[in-house]
Design a protein around this nucleic acid. Sequence first.
DNA 1: TCTGGGGTCCTAGGACCC
DNA 2: TCTGGGGTCCTAGGACCC
Length: 357
Amino acid sequence: MSATPWVLHVDLDQFIAAVEVLRHPELAGKQVIVGGRGDPTERAVVSTASYEARELGVGSGMPLRIAARKAPDAVILPVDREAYDAVSAEVMAELRAQPGAVVQALGWDEAFVGVTTDDPEGYARGIQSAVLARTALHCSVGIGDTLVRAKVATGFGKPRGVFRLTAANWLEVMGHRPTIELWGVGSKISKRLATLGIRTVVELAAAEDAVLAAEFGPRMGPWYAQLGRGEGSAEVDDTPYVPRGHSRETTFQRDLETRDEIEDAARTLLAQVLADVSADARPVIGLGLKVRYAPFVTKTFTRKIAETTNVPAIMTEAMALVAKIEPDRPVRLLGIRAEMAIPEDARDDHTPTRGGW
DNA sequence: TCTGGGGTCCTAGGACCC
DNA sequence: TCTGGGGTCCTAGGACCC
């Protein structure tokens, strides 16, 4: 038996809720909801609900006030990013300490691990016990011969399990399932695929590139066919993450009505964004503004600017975007984004990605 | 009492140039 | 008169992920 390269995908089980239970052991087994500032009368959504709360129909993304109505006895906690950051760093450090591991973090609670071994299941079990010993958290591990297969495999391992998905069993396991179960296919794309008569993974796998390209464009079309086959990159990339930009957005508890209020809010957001940008020590090359007028109309404006680190200059450009906001229309959400110059050697090419890899 | 906040990349269409 | 063809850049918006 010779050693083979494998992609492992490690996913912490119920990460946010699990961290909160570690800090508050008395919450174990109770209905726990984490979201916003922990105040169900505010405009906010659920980040995570414990299994006990999920049984009452509470799920992530749900408005907090509706969640509180469904689970009136639940403990509602505020989101504590710093706490999750700290635990996440411990998890990632433990993964990097595994023998031969190449680690690519995908967020707080997920990572790809590349490793060459003749026993990927044994290696995966080793990861699980090492993470548990260091952080008292459980995780599931997907094993694959591509990134996509490893990522999808994890779902079959949850909770606390290991599952292997390769070219040998991909269609057997995934072929009959709806396309929305693929990583990178959401509700909109799955519906558009259905109008082409493509409803299952095996149908997508057999679809012609030309048909998909006509519907989704020259890059996304063929990429979806690849997804259907579970194919694509098998390379775990551990080069340091270089952010393309920083943004801040806020939903106001009371809609903003006046020009002054809106401009003040924009200046505050921009100052926060520029603090993040300056921490990266890179110039700004573009700005974006997102505005949601009550209740559901969202507009975006973007503006390319001459590369600069000059704060007053950036402020002037940002205010030119703010001027596009329609007057006399209540503003419920405001977001500001700064695009940063990317170092030449950090510029990657192609492989459409969806938030992370 | 309707909808967080932080990201990534792709596409279409218009402006502009030769 | 009537309106080519190719290319790049920019903006607005869409879709998805954690």
